[in-house]
């Protein structure tokens, strides 16, 4: 039977094809790109310094729902890590991906090869994660240096940040297939900023009225902040499992949706 060994084979060759897409991005890496990388890293650091430490001096310590008492900077830092993982993944999978698909027509050439939309999506996402991972690692180093978390917790927080990146990368890719023009990016930017402000980043979600709090707790950035904060301040309990399950499901669902949308846009 020809059909039987195919799934395993498809897994290996599919991963290889996805790697070829990421490899293409590595080849295309030119000097200008480093500027983008630096700015993506600087932003959360500036927020951490100005709000976490600056405003933190006025706010004082916070008591978390689990009972732990932490400095405001230690409260804000994990949220900055989560949102930098989000914005790094989003900018790679929306701006860059949209530009490649609609303006550079890059994938029109790629689909004429054995590479399939799902493999393109996975390759681009993997690449976005390489970038997001770099941001996260650098940011965690700063957190450890500023004594906002321990080295051991930072090691656990790193894969959590990568998972956050995957979820937002897949989400961004789906959004990119729905965007009609560059103007739509303004809408996306507003949505992203709203998430950034209200996902328990600067204020604990418990501070909101119950209805708003429920809404906030459903958003992907809240789940990300909750997960990473839990790891960084060393909260006990099993609620991180819910965050991980949420983010894994978001990644899988969005990846499937993005590749389906791509197939419809490319295979005319």
């Amino acid at each position: 039977m020809v059909g039987l060994p195919l799934p395993r084979l498809a897994g290996v060759t599919g991963a290889r094809r996805s790697a070829a897409i990421a490899e293409r991005n590595l080849t295309a890496l030119r000097s200008a790109y480093w500027l983008v990388l630096v700015s993506g890293f600087l932003e959360p650091v500036l927020y951490l310094l100005s709000i976490g430490i600056g405003v933190g001096a006025l706010v004082g310590d916070l008591t978390l729902p689990g009972g732990a008492v932490v400095s405001y900077a230690a409260f804000v830092a994990p949220a900055m890590l989560a949102s930098s993982a989000m914005s790094g993944a989003l900018s790679e999978t929306t701006f860059n991906f949209f530009g490649k698909m609609k303006y550079m027509k890059l994938y029109d050439g790629v689909i004429a090869t054995p590479v399939q939309p799902f493999e393109i999506a996975l390759g681009e996402l993997g690449w976005a994660m390489a970038r997001g991972g770099l941001y996260s690692a650098a940011f965690l180093l700063i957190m450890v240096a500023l004594d906002l978390t321990t080295a051991a917790r930072a090691l656990v927080a790193f894969p959590a940040a990568v998972l956050v990146g995957f979820a937002f990368g897949a989400l961004g890719m789906t959004v990119a297939t729905l965007l009609r023009s560059w103007q739509d990016f303004d809408l996306m930017g507003s949505a992203q900023f709203t998430l950034f402000l209200f996902s328990g980043t600067f204020v604990p979600a418990e501070a909101y009225p119950a209805a708003v709090r429920w809404l906030v707790e459903l958003t992907p950035l809240y789940r990300s902040v909750h997960l990473i904060r839990g790891v960084c301040v060393g909260e006990s309990g099993w609620s991180w499992l819910l965050d991980v399950a949420y983010l894994v499901a978001l990644t899988a669902g969005m990846l499937a949706l993005a590749s389906r949308r791509m197939g419809r846009l490319l295979y005319l």
Binding site: A20, E23, R24, A28, M104, D108, G109, T113, P114, V115
Partner: peptide, 20 residues
């Protein structure tokens, strides 16, 4: 549908990689 971010040579080598 050439890749504008790559050189002439890279366009060929990268495309070859898509074929494994």
């Amino acid at each position: 549908s050439l890749d504008p971010e790559l050189t002439v040579r890279e366009n060929l080598t990268t495309y070859a990689r898509y074929f494994g």
